Amino acid sequence: SEEEIREAFRVFDKDGNGYISAADLRHVMTNLGEKLTDEEVDEMIREADIDGDGQVNYEDFVQMMTA
Protein backbone atom coordinates (compact mmCIF):
# COMPACT_ATOMS: atom_id res chain seq x y z
CA SER A 1 0.00 0.00 0.00
CA GLU A 2 1.06 3.59 -0.38
CA GLU A 3 1.25 4.02 3.39
CA GLU A 4 3.59 1.03 3.69
CA ILE A 5 5.82 2.47 0.97
CA ARG A 6 5.84 5.85 2.70
CA GLU A 7 6.75 4.19 6.00
CA ALA A 8 9.56 2.21 4.34
CA PHE A 9 10.89 5.43 2.79
CA ARG A 10 10.96 7.06 6.23
CA VAL A 11 13.01 4.13 7.56
CA PHE A 12 15.62 4.61 4.81
CA ASP A 13 15.60 8.43 4.91
CA LYS A 14 17.50 8.59 8.20
CA ASP A 15 18.02 12.36 8.30
CA GLY A 16 14.49 13.13 7.11
CA ASN A 17 15.60 15.34 4.22
CA GLY A 18 13.36 13.64 1.66
CA TYR A 19 16.19 11.76 -0.03
CA ILE A 20 17.86 8.41 0.52
CA SER A 21 21.61 8.93 0.25
CA ALA A 22 24.24 6.24 -0.07
CA ALA A 23 25.00 6.79 3.63
CA ASP A 24 21.31 6.34 4.56
CA LEU A 25 21.13 3.15 2.50
CA ARG A 26 24.37 1.75 3.94
CA HIS A 27 23.13 2.43 7.49
CA VAL A 28 19.85 0.57 6.98
CA MET A 29 21.46 -2.36 5.16
CA THR A 30 24.06 -2.70 7.94
CA ASN A 31 21.25 -2.73 10.53
CA LEU A 32 19.62 -5.52 8.51
CA GLY A 33 22.86 -7.50 8.75
CA GLU A 34 23.89 -6.87 5.14
CA LYS A 35 27.57 -6.08 4.81
CA LEU A 36 27.87 -4.22 1.52
CA THR A 37 30.89 -2.67 -0.10
CA ASP A 38 30.77 1.00 -1.08
CA GLU A 39 30.57 -0.16 -4.70
CA GLU A 40 27.52 -2.31 -3.97
CA VAL A 41 25.78 0.54 -2.15
CA ASP A 42 26.59 2.96 -4.99
CA GLU A 43 25.23 0.45 -7.51
CA MET A 44 21.96 0.14 -5.56
CA ILE A 45 21.64 3.94 -5.51
CA ARG A 46 22.34 4.13 -9.26
CA GLU A 47 19.69 1.51 -10.02
CA ALA A 48 17.06 3.26 -7.90
CA ASP A 49 18.00 6.82 -8.89
CA ILE A 50 15.56 7.32 -11.76
CA ASP A 51 16.19 11.04 -12.27
CA GLY A 52 19.97 10.75 -12.02
CA ASP A 53 20.56 13.26 -9.22
CA GLY A 54 22.74 10.88 -7.19
CA GLN A 55 20.20 10.17 -4.49
CA VAL A 56 16.85 8.46 -4.26
CA ASN A 57 13.83 10.72 -3.75
CA TYR A 58 10.36 9.51 -2.83
CA GLU A 59 9.23 9.25 -6.47
CA ASP A 60 12.32 7.16 -7.33
CA PHE A 61 11.62 4.97 -4.29
CA VAL A 62 7.97 4.39 -5.25
CA GLN A 63 8.98 3.37 -8.78
CA MET A 64 11.60 0.99 -7.39
CA MET A 65 9.17 -0.57 -4.88
CA THR A 66 6.35 -1.00 -7.39
CA ALA A 67 8.48 -2.22 -10.31
Rank of each mutant, 00 (worst) to 15 (best):
A48N: 06
M65T: 02
V11G: 04
N57A: 12
D60F: 15
A23Y: 05
E59N: 10
R6P: 00
E3F: 11
E39M: 09
E2M: 13
Y19G: 01
R26N: 03
A48I: 12
S21M: 08
G54T: 05
G18L: 02
E47M: 15
I5V: 07
G18Q: 01
A8R: 09
E43S: 14
R6Y: 09
R10K: 09
V62D: 00
E40S: 06
I45K: 02
D15F: 09
E40K: 11
A8F: 07
N17D: 07
R46W: 05
A48L: 14
R10D: 02
S1D: 06
Q55I: 09
G54C: 10
S21N: 08
G52D: 13
D24Q: 08
D38K: 14
I20H: 00
G54H: 05
T37G: 05
E2K: 11
E40V: 09
D51M: 11
D15T: 10
F9D: 00
L32Q: 03
D15A: 08
G16H: 07
F61H: 00
D42E: 13
G33P: 07
Q63K: 14
D15R: 05
N17G: 05
G52L: 10
F9T: 00
I5L: 12
Y58N: 00
E47N: 15
G52T: 10
D49N: 14
R10M: 07
K14A: 08
A67W: 02
F61L: 10
D38W: 11
M44G: 01
R46I: 04
H27M: 12
T30F: 13
Y58D: 00
M29D: 00
A22S: 07
V56S: 01
L32R: 04
V56M: 05
D60G: 12
A22T: 13
D15P: 03
L36K: 06
T37D: 04
G52A: 13
M65N: 01
R10C: 03
G52Q: 11
I20N: 00
N57R: 15
N31F: 15
I45Y: 05
F12G: 01
A67G: 08
D15W: 08
E7D: 09
N57Y: 15
T37A: 05
Q55V: 06
T66Q: 08
M65Q: 02
D24L: 08
L32K: 03
N17S: 12
M29I: 12
G16Q: 07
L36H: 07
K14S: 08
D38H: 09
Y58K: 01
A48C: 14
V56W: 03
Y58L: 07
A48K: 07
T66A: 12
E40C: 13
E34H: 15
R6Q: 02
D49E: 12
Y19S: 04
G52W: 09
T30N: 11
M29R: 01
E4D: 08
A23H: 11
L25S: 02
A23K: 12
E40R: 12
G54S: 05
N17T: 13
G16T: 03
D24Y: 05
D49P: 06
E3M: 10
V28H: 01
V56C: 03
I5Y: 09
V11C: 08
E40Q: 14
R10E: 02
L36E: 02
D49C: 12
G18I: 01
E4H: 09
S21A: 09
K35A: 09
Q55P: 04
H27F: 13
E47A: 15
K14E: 05
G18R: 02
E4G: 08
D49K: 15
R10W: 03
L25V: 10
D53R: 11
D42H: 07
K35P: 11
T37S: 10
E39I: 10
Q55R: 13
E39W: 12
E59G: 05
D42N: 12
V28Y: 02
L36A: 04
T66N: 07
R46A: 08
S21G: 04
M29V: 06
V41N: 02
G33N: 14
T66E: 04
E59R: 06
S1Q: 07
L36T: 04
R46N: 07
M29N: 02
A8T: 03
H27D: 06
F12H: 05
M44C: 08
R10T: 03
E59Y: 08
S1W: 14
D13R: 00
F61G: 00
D15L: 11
E59A: 06
I20V: 06
N17H: 06
V62N: 01
D24M: 08
G54W: 04
T37L: 05
E34L: 15
I45R: 03
I20P: 00
T66Y: 06
G18N: 03
E2R: 09
M29P: 00
A8Y: 09
D53I: 10
R26H: 06
N31L: 15
F9R: 00
V56N: 00
M29H: 01
Y19F: 10
G52F: 09
R10N: 04
E4A: 12
M65W: 07
E34I: 15
S21R: 08
A22F: 13
D53L: 11
E39Y: 10
L32S: 03
I20L: 03
K14W: 09
N17E: 04
V56I: 13
E4K: 14
F12I: 03
V62A: 03
V62P: 01
V11Q: 11
I20M: 04
T30K: 15
R46K: 13
D13G: 01
V28G: 03
Y58I: 14
H27I: 12
N57H: 13
R26L: 06
L36G: 02
I5N: 01
E34K: 15
A67H: 14
S1K: 12
E47Q: 15
E3L: 09
V41D: 01
R46E: 05
E3A: 11
K35R: 13
D24K: 04
I50Q: 10
T30L: 15
F9Y: 01
L36I: 08
I50Y: 08
D24R: 03
S21Q: 06
E47P: 03
D15N: 14
Q55F: 13
D24F: 05
G52M: 10
L25E: 00
G16R: 07
M29C: 03
Q63D: 05
D13M: 02
E39L: 09
I45P: 00
L32I: 09
D42A: 12
F12Y: 09
I20G: 00
N31E: 11
R26K: 10
E39C: 13
K35F: 11
Y58T: 02
I5E: 00
D13H: 01
A23N: 10
M65P: 01
E7A: 14
G33C: 15
F61P: 00
V41Y: 13
G18T: 01
D24N: 08
E2H: 09
T37E: 03
D49S: 12
N31I: 15
V11F: 10
E47K: 15
R46P: 02
N57L: 12
V56P: 01
V56Q: 00
I50A: 10
I5D: 00
V11M: 12
K35V: 09
N31M: 15
F9Q: 00
Y58H: 01
N57I: 05
E40A: 11
E2W: 15
I50R: 13
A23S: 08
D15E: 12
D15I: 07
V62E: 02
D38M: 12
F61S: 00
F61R: 00
S21P: 06
D13T: 01
G18A: 01
E47R: 15
E2T: 08
E43I: 14
I5F: 08
R6I: 06
D15V: 07
R10L: 04
R6G: 01
I5C: 04
E40L: 08
V11A: 12
D15Q: 11
L32M: 08
K14G: 04
L32T: 03
L25H: 00
D49M: 13
G54M: 04
D24I: 07
E34A: 15
G54I: 04
A48H: 11
V56L: 08
R46S: 07
M65Y: 06
A67S: 13
M44I: 08
L25D: 00
D38A: 12
D60Y: 15
E39K: 12
N31H: 13
E59S: 07
G16A: 06
A22W: 11
E4W: 14
I45C: 04
K35L: 10
Y19T: 07
N57T: 07
D38R: 11
E40P: 02
F61C: 03
F61K: 00
L32V: 05
G16I: 02
I45L: 12
G52E: 12
E47W: 15
L32N: 02
D13A: 02
K35C: 12
A67D: 08
D53A: 11
A22D: 04
M29Y: 04
D51R: 13
S21F: 07
E59T: 05
N31K: 14
E7C: 10
D42P: 01
A22C: 08
T37R: 06
D38E: 12
N17L: 08
I50S: 08
E7K: 13
V62Q: 02
S1R: 13
D49R: 15
F61I: 15
D42I: 12
E59P: 02
G18E: 01
N17C: 05
E43A: 15
H27E: 09
E43M: 14
D60M: 15
K14Q: 08
V56K: 00
L25F: 13
I20R: 00
D53C: 08
K14T: 10
G33Y: 14
Q63I: 09
A22I: 15
V62G: 01
G18W: 02
V56R: 01
A8W: 10
I20W: 00
G16C: 07
I50G: 07
S21K: 06
F61D: 00
E40M: 12
E4T: 09
I45G: 01
M65I: 08
M29G: 00
E34M: 15
